Amino acid sequence: MRVTTQNGRVVLAPDQQEKPVDVHELSENQFRSLGLANVAYIRPAMTEEGEEGCAIHAADGSPLAFVEDIETAWGVILQNDMIPASLQ
């Protein structure tokens, strides 16, 4: 499987002998292989003080930031030339 980008989106292209891959069925290791510097995911989160917001993580799960809402999260990710993925 080859991982490339097309119009700012991650595209998984099968090798000549492989069948197409459904990105919704990626294993944890396959998701990580998409590239730490390219993909960030967003998920709902809560601070220790009880504030609701969104956590931004690298593809390997490393925390990157906490923001107030999903729109801000998408903006932060795009400003840093990364590809957002939502886990809601």
Rank of each mutant, 00 (worst) to 15 (best):
M1S: 15
M1W: 10
R2K: 09
R2C: 00
N7S: 14
G8L: 05
R9S: 04
R9W: 01
R9Y: 10
V11A: 13
A13S: 15
A13T: 15
A13E: 15
D15E: 11
Q16A: 14
Q16F: 13
Q17G: 11
K19F: 09
K19E: 12
K19T: 10
P20F: 00
V23C: 12
H24A: 11
H24R: 13
E28H: 03
E28K: 07
E28G: 02
Q30Y: 02
F31M: 09
R32S: 06
S33P: 00
G35H: 03
G35Q: 02
L36K: 14
V39T: 03
V39D: 03
A40C: 13
Y41T: 00
P44F: 10
P44H: 11
A45C: 10
A45T: 05
M46L: 06
T47C: 01
T47D: 05
T47G: 00
E48M: 11
E48W: 09
G50N: 01
G50A: 05
E51K: 12
E51Y: 05
E52G: 06
G53V: 03
C54N: 12
A55C: 07
H57F: 08
H57V: 04
A58H: 04
A59V: 07
G61R: 01
P63M: 09
P63Q: 06
P63I: 03
L64K: 05
A65F: 10
V67M: 04
V67E: 00
E68W: 01
E68T: 08
D69S: 06
D69H: 05
D69M: 10
D69N: 15
E71G: 10
T72S: 13
T72Q: 15
W74I: 14
W74K: 15
L78N: 06
L78G: 06
N80S: 02
N80G: 01
D81E: 12
I83F: 13
I83Y: 07
S86I: 06
S86M: 09
L87E: 09
